[in-house]
Design a protein around this nucleic acid. Structure first.
Length: 127
DNA sequence: GGGGTGACTGCAG
DNA sequence: CCTGCAGCCACCC
């Protein structure tokens, strides 16, 4: 039983590692990609206990509304904001403009909203 | 077994 | 744009 959770966690790490630098996605999106649609909360938990946390671009996973999920006065919040800005993602009042930085992941197909994926790096995309 | 707890979400107001 | 709230679900007392 817990074997499935293990699989889930691995899927989470896999997909998070696929988020291109300079882009962000939501906990819910990762949950969906991992095969467990309603488990956004568990994605955060998986990230928090990730053994290779230092290696994963966990900062690229934020709330569905574009907001950093940590309490704005916490250290975690500051660190995440710092990491994101370091790779070019602007954080205004704790949130990211999804119009500019949302990762167009696999399951989204192509909604012809290609408005601004101009410089998407083909190499970072789809491995 | 029962109740509280989030690094969540979507929708109402 | 922001706040509130019900739904969600594995985990931890």
């Amino acid at each position: 039983m817990s074997e499935q959770m293990e699989h889930f966690r691995q899927q989470v790490y896999y997909w998070v590692s696929k988020i291109p630098k300079g882009k962000v996605t939501s906990y819910g999106a990762i949950a969906k990609l991992s095969g467990f649609p309603r488990h956004a909360r568990h994605v955060s938990k998986a990230l928090g206990s990730a053994p290779n946390r230092k290696k994963l671009p966990w900062q690229r996973v934020i709330g569905a509304d574009g907001k950093i999920a940590f309490n704005s006065d916490s250290d975690h919040f500051a660190i995440q904001q710092s990491l994101l800005e370091k790779e070019g993602v602007k954080v205004i009042k704790g949130k990211v403009d999804l119009k500019l930085y949302a990762w167009k992941h696999p399951l989204e197909g192509d909604k012809k909203t290609s408005s601004q994926n101009s410089g998407i790096q083909a190499e970072d995309f789809f491995r």
